[in-house]
Structures are given as C-alpha cells and as structure tokens.
C-alpha cells in the first residue's frame, strides 16, 4: 500500500507539470462548459454537448494518459528504477491507474454538474462515466505495456482512441457506424447518455447488453494487457 500511495502522490505532483497530460484532463470538460452555455439551437437535445464531450472524454483522456505516462516511464528508464526498488508491477499500475481514474472522475463530476442531471440521473451518469474511464484505463495500460517508448505508444493510441472516442459521436450520422458502436463500451455509454438527454423525465436503466459490452471490452483489454505483459514485462 505504501508504494501505491507513493506513486499516486508522485503522479499528483506531476499533474500541473506534465502539460500534455494536464490538457487531456481539462480540455473536454472546459469545452463542454463553454459549448453548453454559449450555443443554443432550437430543438437541440438536452445536455447535447455534455454527452458528446463526456463520451469523447471517456475514450480519450484515461486511455492516452495511461499509455503516455507508462511509455514515458519506460523510455526514460524511471519505470525500471521503480521495479528495481521493490515496486511490484501491480502496485505501479494501481498507483498510476487510480490517479488517472480519480482525476478523470473530477472531470466526470464537472460534466455532471454542467449538464442538468439530478438525483438518479446524475448517479447513473457518474456511474457509467466511472465504468467507461476504468475500461479506457485498462486499454491504456495494455498499450503502455506493449509499447517500448512514447513514439510507439502514440502510433498505437491514436487509432484506438479514434475508435473509442469518435465512433459513438459519428454513430448519430451513419447507421453502419451505429451498429459497430454498439459493440464498444463508449458507444453504449453514449447511447444511454443520449436517452437521458432526449427523453425528459427518463428513468435511466442499465441494460444487460450494456453491462455485457462493457464487461467484454474490459476482458479484451485485460487479455491484451496479459499478453503484452507476458511478452516483455512491465519495464
């Protein structure tokens, strides 16, 4: 536990100093606040921009942050030093992952407050954000473990991030994309958010399909991570 706390605290200290990561954390919440308050179009669904940017946030911020932090630590040999200093790979992953999850949850709360969610709706919104952020973290950890350096992490992160961050948004314009998006966690989350937005007074229910898709996505990420870990270890 001591090692996890030490790594968590180290990441907190780096938050404002690592501008690339910091921008990831704040960009979409800020855009949601600005757009939600500045743009008013007739018949626009409730919380349209909040849902849009929140689903993009889920697919982008945790995934890129985790992959970027891990690959940077590998490239600069800091991860190797940590592993040499009695830090177990799982302790590192929990310390770093819990930090990113916590920061992203602050972002999720900002989205929740920016929108008009209240009561059960707000709880469901925060809950599905938490699950989505966790799924993205697992994918980010798998990419970070697979990559040898930041360059290779970026080349993997960008296409994967596009799928998870942009497919849900594009599903509104194309039916074929919508069918594909049903099989990814961010697509399911975006669907539920939209239902809450379109139907006033809608009582959000977590469907079995949604749980199955998010669970299956997480399982694939865990398998990818396990494969990467067996191949080259963490450091």
């Amino acid at each position: 536990m001591r090692n996890i706390i030490a790594i968590f605290q180290k990441q907190v200290k780096e938050t404002f100093k690592n501008k690339t990561i910091f921008i990831q954390f704040i960009m979409f919440p800020i855009m949601a606040i600005i757009m939600e308050n500045a743009i008013e179009i007739a018949n626009m669904p409730e919380n349209y921009f909040v849902n849009l940017f929140a689903s993009m946030y889920i697919g982008m911020a945790p995934l890129t942050s985790m992959a970027s932090i891990m690959s940077e630590e590998k490239e600069k040999n800091t991860l190797r030093v940590l592993m040499m200093s009695q830090v177990k790979p799982m302790q590192y992953l929990i310390g770093t992952g819990s930090y990113i999850w916590a920061i992203c949850m602050v972002g999720a709360c900002v989205f929740g407050v920016t929108g008009t969610y209240e009561g059960k709706e707000l709880a469901v919104f925060i809950g599905i954000m938490a699950a989505g952020i966790l799924a993205s973290l697992l994918i980010g950890a798998a990419i970070g473990t697979w990559s040898r350096n930041q360059m290779s992490a970026t080349s993997l992160t960008i296409p994967i991030m596009f799928v998870f961050a942009f497919l849900p948004m594009l599903s509104g314009f194309n039916e074929a994309i919508a069918k594909v998006a049903r099989f990814i966690y961010s697509g399911q989350i975006y669907d539920l958010m939209n239902q809450m937005g379109y139907q006033s007074g809608y009582q959000p229910e977590i469907s079995l399909e949604m749980v199955a898709v998010i669970g299956a996505n997480m399982l694939v990420a865990i398998l990818f991570f396990a494969f990467s870990y067996r191949k080259s270890g963490l450091a």
Partner: peptide, 13 residues
C-alpha cells in the same frame, strides 16, 4: 542500489 547511465530521474520533479 542502482545508478544507470540514463539515470532514470523524473525530470519534471
């Protein structure tokens, strides 16, 4: 204890 040639220091800290 180990000191590597690349040092492995956190540069922002």
């Amino acid at each position: 204890g180990m000191m590597m040639d690349s040092h492995g220091l956190y540069e922002r800290l």
